[in-house]
Design a protein around this nucleic acid. Structure first.
Length: 567
RNA sequence: UGACCCAUGGUGUAACGGCAGCACAAGAGAUUUUGGUUCUCUCGGUCCAGGUUCGAAUCCUGGUGGGUCAACCA
């Protein structure tokens, strides 16, 4: 995969608000003009397209301003985290084309340091051990409109707090019996400032620190300090952390350490899908999809398996821009980005998804001709491929109509069409199954003088069809994927419904297609355009006996709307 | 019923007090051995009310609408 690069029009393009802030900081000599970002996922799930936006932002900004980007796992909650997720996240970031070089970090690397920070606060009488239960704490926290009540343990002495906190670490107390809290302001209009929990007791095995700890810092007490430790200059995060910023700044100030600048942006939403980790997990666990990398999932691994390229996703991230207002991106923009990329990269193949037999009555019975067609009209360097042609062919069932409307450019009784890279044929008669009325055979005559390349082949005909020769056609499995939900915003619920009520029952259709023999050279993950149908990629489920193709996206179709395939 | 954030075509995103532009989508046409691609064109927008100013999408005030915040989650 090629390296991501700043678009050439970089200089011409106007700046987004993050770039403006960073450029102003550089101008003002903040951090000596240094730019250092980080991508800080929690390893408790798979990355999705929304994370891709954040990844592209963080790595893209650093690249643009000659800075660095760290990959840091915010692994402060051992009960939810796992190395499985660590591995998949690293693979996804790399696949997207980004490199954190030797700067792979974990918040758990800083546990000792963070513990020391807690001690600093205790000594300054800015933190205390609280023995209230979770319920009591919840009751005394107040509401956004009413102040909370101070904990009776708030006035413990520094000595007692140090002793208790140390004993928490030594494992003397059971889970949930005590916490360390910051002493800030129970009446603050910002709920996060109402003596938030800093440490909780959790006798849990951590994927990296093992059983070394039985107390773990809360995300809020680890995230900002981790950024500080790594000397991050610009901490880019999503909008919901805006209200946490005063708390992070309070910690940094009270502890007295380097202060990164946090900037929040609006998270990505895409039509016809859901983005929350909880819902994605539910779809996987309850079997609505076949795993995290199901090609219908908005996960990075799902998109990869679906056949999206890193370039197309990066370009998507660039195109959607970034701002602070809530947004829902039309999935058609994502589709545009992958078509644009695959149009110039994917070799063409003729594949018939819903075949109907065509017999050329005037073609020699046993003759097989070898024709040629360009592999990719957008890229001559891809050369040509061989195509066998014979008396009995298959075309797409809906490329024929017995009684067509005016604007139908394809085959119909008495009408002529071109067979791509072959001959012009005319429909003479049809044979139907007497019982069902289904068309079984379309009898045509071909014009030998119209072979591709011959002068007569330039004759004007309305339509050009794709086709395969019966004898040489290769059967493959084709998985036709469509949007996972039928509703633009599955979270916009009607009375008594859940987002799962809007699942698209036709999001996957499996058909057997007939493909030209060239398909035998197809390798897993390669992308092809099935001419006149769409872009497809070879799925890892393929075996030497049977290739499996996933439809990435259909071609734009200004004739039929939506799916051409009804099989 | 508090604090904070946000508001530009259908969807995104620009315009930094001086002609509201770009992309996707939608529609029309040209080209085409893919009803693809490419090219041309069209449709369509500053939430409302005041104020400041020669001039406001932009600054101020007040509304309205949307979002976020009350895990020992992140």
């Amino acid at each position: 995969m090629e390296e991501p690069k700043i678009p050439e029009e970089k200089a011409a393009r106007s700046l987004n608000f993050l770039e403006e802030i960073i450029e102003e900081d550089i101008r003002n000599g903040v951090n000596e003009g240094r730019v250092h970002t980080r991508f800080p996922p929690e390893p408790n799930g798979y990355l999705h397209i929304g994370h891709a936006k954040s990844i592209c932002l963080n790595f893209g900004l650093a690249r643009r301003y000659n800075g660095l980007t760290n990959l840091r796992f915010d692994d402060t909650n051992p009960v939810k985290e796992d190395v499985e997720y660590v591995d998949s996240i690293m693979a996804d970031v790399r696949w997207l084309g980004f490199d954190w070089e030797d700067r792979l970090f974990y918040a758990s690397d800083y546990f000792e340091q963070i513990y020391d920070y807690a001690m600093v606060l205790i000594r300054k009488e800015k933190a205390y051990v609280c023995d209230m239960t979770a319920e009591e704490m919840s009751e005394t926290r107040g509401t956004p409109t009413r102040p909370g009540k101070e904990s009776p343990f708030r006035t413990r002495s520094v000595e007692e707090n140090i002793d208790l906190f140390n004993r928490m670490r030594q494992g003397e107390f059971p889970d949930g019996s005590r916490v360390l809290r910051a002493k800030i302001d129970m009446a603050s209009p910002n709920m996060h400032m109402r003596d938030p929990v800093l440490y909780r007791i959790l006798h849990a095995h951590h994927h990296r620190t093992g059983d070394q700890w039985c107390i773990y810092p809360m995300y809020d007490f680890a995230h900002g300090q981790s950024d500080s430790i790594e000397k991050i200059t610009h901490s880019i995060c999503t909008l919901e952390f805006e209200v946490h910023r005063p708390l992070y700044e309070w910690f940094i100030r009270e502890i007295g350490i380097y202060a990164p600048r946090q900037i929040e942006f609006a998270r990505l939403n895409v039509t016809y899908t859901v983005m929350s980790k909880r819902k994605l997990l539910e779809l996987v666990q309850q079997g609505y999809v076949n795993g995290w990398d199901d090609p219908r999932m908005p996960t990075i691994c799902g998109l990869r398996r679906r056949g999206f390229t890193p370039e197309s996703i990066r370009n998507f991230a660039e195109t959607i821009g970034v701002a602070k207002r809530d947004n829902v991106i039309d999935v058609s923009l994502l589709e545009f980005c992958i078509r644009e990329d695959l149009n110039r990269k994917a070799n063409r193949l003729m594949a018939v998804l819903d075949p109907v037999k065509v017999i050329l009555d005037n073609y020699p019975d046993d003759q097989v001709e070898e024709l040629e067609s360009v592999s990719n009209p957008e890229d001559e360097s891809k050369g040509k491929r061989k195509l066998p042609f014979s008396k009995t062919l298959f075309i797409e069932r809906d490329d024929f109509m017995e009684d067509p409307p005016n604007k139908f450019f394809r085959l119909a009784p008495g009408r002529e069409v071109r067979l791509k890279a072959a001959y012009i044929i005319r429909c003479e008669s049809i044979v139907k199954d007497p019982a069902t009325g289904k068309i079984e055979e379309i009898h045509c005559t071909y014009d030998p003088m119209t072979k591709s390349g011959m002068p007569d082949s330039n004759r004007k005909v309305k339509g050009t069809l794709h086709w395969v020769s019966e004898q040489q056609a290769v059967k493959v499995e084709v998985r036709l994927y469509d949007r996972l939900f039928v509703k633009e915003n599955p979270d916009d619920l009607e009375e008594g419904k859940t987002y799962k009520d809007y699942l698209n029952p036709d999001s996957l259709k499996v058909v057997t297609a007939l493909v030209e023999p060239e398909v035998r050279n197809a390798k897993v993950s390669e992308k092809y355009q099935f001419e006149r149908i769409g872009y497809f990629t070879v799925d890892a489920d393929s075996t030497p006996e049977k290739l499996v193709f996933n439809r990435v996206v259909p071609l734009k179709d200004s004739w039929g709307k939506g799916d051409k395939v009804t099989g």
